[in-house]
Design a protein around this nucleic acid. Sequence first.
DNA 1: CGGACTTTGTGCATTCATTCACAATCGACG
DNA 2: CGTCGATTGTGAATGAATGCACAAAGTCCG
Lengths: 244, 244
Amino acid sequence: MSSAAEFPGSEAEPGNLADRPYPGGIPDATVARLPVYLRALYALAERGVTTVASDELARSAGVNSAKLRKDLSHLGSYGIRGVGYDVEYLVYQVSRALGLTQRWPVVIIGAGNLGRALANYGGFLNRGFRIEAVLDSDPSLVGRKLGSVIVRHVSELEALVAEHGIAIGVIAVPAGAAQAMCDRLVATGVTSILNFAPLVLNVPGGVDVRKVDLSIELQILAFHAQRRSTARFVQATDRAAAEA
Amino acid sequence: MSSAAEFPGSEAEPGNLADRPYPGGIPDATVARLPVYLRALYALAERGVTTVASDELARSAGVNSAKLRKDLSHLGSYGIRGVGYDVEYLVYQVSRALGLTQRWPVVIIGAGNLGRALANYGGFLNRGFRIEAVLDSDPSLVGRKLGSVIVRHVSELEALVAEHGIAIGVIAVPAGAAQAMCDRLVATGVTSILNFAPLVLNVPGGVDVRKVDLSIELQILAFHAQRRSTARFVQATDRAAAEA
DNA sequence: CGGACTTTGTGCATTCATTCACAATCGACG
DNA sequence: CGTCGATTGTGAATGAATGCACAAAGTCCG
Ligand SMILES: NC(=O)c1ccc[n+]([C@@H]2O[C@H](COP(=O)([O-])OP(=O)(O)OC[C@H]3O[C@@H](n4cnc5c(N)ncnc54)[C@H](O)[C@@H]3O)[C@@H](O)[C@H]2O)c1
Ligand SMILES: NC(=O)c1ccc[n+]([C@@H]2O[C@H](COP(=O)([O-])OP(=O)(O)OC[C@H]3O[C@@H](n4cnc5c(N)ncnc54)[C@H](O)[C@@H]3O)[C@@H](O)[C@H]2O)c1
């Protein structure tokens, strides 16, 4: 992969774009899509594609191509007009924008059904993240091997965070214990939290919480399903009303 | 743009609100928050609270109170000025808006780490959903009991969907098999899909796909974590530059 | 070397979402 | 029964996101 020097951006005098790549900040909506683009780019790279136009990349990412180009334009001007984007170079730029040039140490709290699935899952370890520890309060789980790590007791949380410089905590404990675990994470200096427990976590400013909530997703699906199934009925009602 | 049918008797008759509760449709952003409100309401109800003001409910849901009120106003006018909302009644109204007065039959495809965690999880079964079947292609998993159901072979998909009137499919198979499973679900008439596999599913119009993607969430966290950690550096750099 | 062709990057209009701020409306209470 | 404090519901202002459409900028080929 090597040097970026031969690509636009480095030579074409955009000021000190190299020093501070994303001056105006990247919109949240864009940040949320960058990982999708990144995945599509990896898939292309694996198929041996070296260059891709916004149109095709947008299709694999499931978005409008103008949106894709505008998103990428927030990172800099890395395309070549008339040609498209160099896949490998764009992978690098998107990774850099997302902060994936370093590998982030992660702790998972809770080794139940979900925590085990997460710890066993190799998918997000590959790129950008490493699970440094899995913790549980249940003594019968401590010592068990999950994926590549051994379950430790939750009392070791603070020590492990300090030792491994952990920046991201994943909460996979029952809802009743989640806020307390969150508080401990925050007190230890963790400022990025991924929450699976079904409640709204309370955190001070400067701490970033994202949630993954299956029930919510299902309920949103149910809403649309209901809307679709009543659409026919409403149409019929409308016709009846129009005749009256 | 042209279709006048989109604005159904807009100013003519506000009277039939009861007949068609949500005339203009509920904004997506609102739909996505209703489940959060619902959860907060259940928590209040369990604590014995019978009435709640938008301010407090908004706090437990982690949103601005004006936003909460506007969201709820899309369902109808169910508050009492000077008092607040009746918790039990609002639970009913939000449930109804989300389509949770019926119980939705769900099929989970894939009984691996994740599928097992989902099937064992009682959380979203309580309200609004029931797992009717868990399917896998691995014969050694077929017959195993997960939660309250027994794993069946994936070849039974079409029959089970028809038999149980399944409307929602959950995809928890490896990425390589996800699109094929999705196609089969769609062909069988399932129009609501929750996808855990890390790829963008391709579906025809009228089919609703939502995704849960842990890698994406972690990457978004990484972005903000990086931004926070470079903020100090940039500030220092700025001062240095200002002095030069 | 020049012109046809392709594709990016972005200005602009439009739509969607958030937040503010307050009149309208309610129960409570004297 | 009228006043008062509380709270809703919503116009209007602001801000964010989307998608169109096209000039600018490149490639490619004859
Ligand atoms: N399993 C799923 O599919 C699923 C789906 C949606 C949401 N969730 C949510 O994810 C969370 C975990 O779910 P699960 O199915 O793994 O639950 P689980 O009960 O299987 O596991 C929870 C684990 O957390 C441990 N634990 C409890 N208190 C703890 C504490 N204070 N510190 C450390 N560990 C503690 C328990 O010992 C247990 O091992 C829950 O909040 C659940 O609501 C799970
Ligand atoms: N486990 C996690 O924490 C996690 C996290 C993020 C994403 N995911 C994604 O969720 C999906 C499932 O993850 P997992 O950890 O459970 O994987 P897994 O390998 O443990 O399980 C996959 C299961 O699907 C079955 N399967 C394969 N092809 C099938 C087919 N055509 N029809 C039916 N079943 C089939 C396999 O037999 C296996 O039991 C994957 O796409 C994965 O990328 C998982």
